[in-house]
């Protein structure tokens, strides 16, 4: 599971829906794996405003990853100084170092094994082979 996904995932238990402590889920005893992929600049630009940056920093810290900047980059930060385009010419945008770092953290850094723990109810979701188990026993639905 990508860290991107962790930035959108909440506890599934009904009673936790309204509690701010149910997001983000906290990784525990985690084995990370880097899975390389092609950078998708339009996707990064699309998703950037939807990220919860403070929570992403928290998670990165909990995982012992390099510290993320205090404030979120903007879309402009993701694009290398746009080359002088000729009149009416379409120029492919070049991802900046910031974009490549963000891609590394969000899309290439994955949780392979371990668990995700809710800060509100302490429920533990197991992750095996990168797949979190979100099946709940009936009484918690």
């Amino acid at each position: 599971m990508k860290l991107l996904t962790l930035n959108f995932l909440t506890c599934a238990i009904k009673a936790c829906k309204s509690s701010p402590a149910s997001f983000p889920l906290h990784p525990r005893d985690v084995e990370l794996e880097i899975v390389e992929s092609d950078i998708n600049l339009p996707f990064l630009k699309n998703i950037l405003p939807r990220l919860m940056w403070a929570e992403l920093r928290t998670i990165a810290a909990e995982l012992g990853l390099p510290e993320l900047p205090e404030t979120a980059p903007t879309r402009d930060h993701l694009v290398e100084g746009k080359e002088e385009a000729k009149e009416g010419e379409e120029v492919d945008e070049v991802p900046s170092q910031t974009a490549r770092d963000l891609h590394r953290v969000l899309l290439e850094t994955t949780v392979k094994e371990g668990k995700l723990v809710c800060g509100n109810c302490a429920h533990e979701y197991k992750v095996m082979e990168g797949v979190p188990n979100f099946l709940l026993p009936g009484h918690l639905v």
């Binding site: 599971m1 909440t10 939807r50 990168g130 099946l135």
Partner: peptide, 18 residues
Amino acid sequence: GDLFLADAGQGVPFRPGT
């Protein structure tokens, strides 16, 4: 894609507007 073992009949565990 990322995969989840989950029952859609139990809800969708992602924050609003994901």
